[in-house]
Design a protein around this nucleic acid. Sequence first.
DNA 1: TTGCAATATGTCATATTTGACATATACTAA
DNA 2: TTAGTATATGTCAAATATGACATATTGCAA
Lengths: 105, 105
Amino acid sequence: MRSNKQKKLEAKGWKIGSASDFLKLSPEEEAYIELKLSLCKTLKRLRTKKHLSQNDLAKMIKSSQSRVAKMEAGDSSVSLDLVIRSLFSVGVSKKDLAKAVSSAT
Amino acid sequence: MRSNKQKKLEAKGWKIGSASDFLKLSPEEEAYIELKLSLCKTLKRLRTKKHLSQNDLAKMIKSSQSRVAKMEAGDSSVSLDLVIRSLFSVGVSKKDLAKAVSSAT
DNA sequence: TTGCAATATGTCATATTTGACATATACTAA
DNA sequence: TTAGTATATGTCAAATATGACATATTGCAA
């Protein structure tokens, strides 16, 4: 079972290459990353639930498939803004949003 | 009493200068702006509650007073990323966050 | 297998967001 | 009034996020 810390490491591009595996995140950074990953997961869940391909979603938000893939992977190059805009585009409910926020570990 | 539409207009820099006062926002854009404004309001509320000046908060997040002011004003030049990072820095609770999300009109 | 659609990954020029700064305005207290 | 502190607003070069693209990989049906 992967630890939460490793999960955060896997947010591609974050602190990778730092000398230590025990990357020190401030509580704020940690909360931010957890929230982001939670929302990315929600996005993927809602997209597949709606039977949309990454390409479909990309067109809806006037972006590209590769960016959608990066979003869903929690890539550090993607902003929360884009993730949240995308969530609204797939019709996320306030309830689902709030749940994703609350459940961010 | 200001209308919701006006409130959104006041999100400085958004669509101002367009020919019409009746700016057409897609439901997604609308939801995004409402969420942002809701979080900006929450930030200001929590900051003042903690008796922090904008300068204090700016130092905490390694930014500047002017950017904090813009954040709290809901300026369109400020990203949700920064607002949310700031919220975490002032110690927002998951509950407060979820509430701000849910209550976004 | 082969073929095709979906997804992942890397790069890059352009667009947006950034902190910093100057300066204006608002609000108290002396 | 004056002085001091807080907040607002405008600008800009530097930093970061962006869509687009090429290409790799996966998964699944024929």
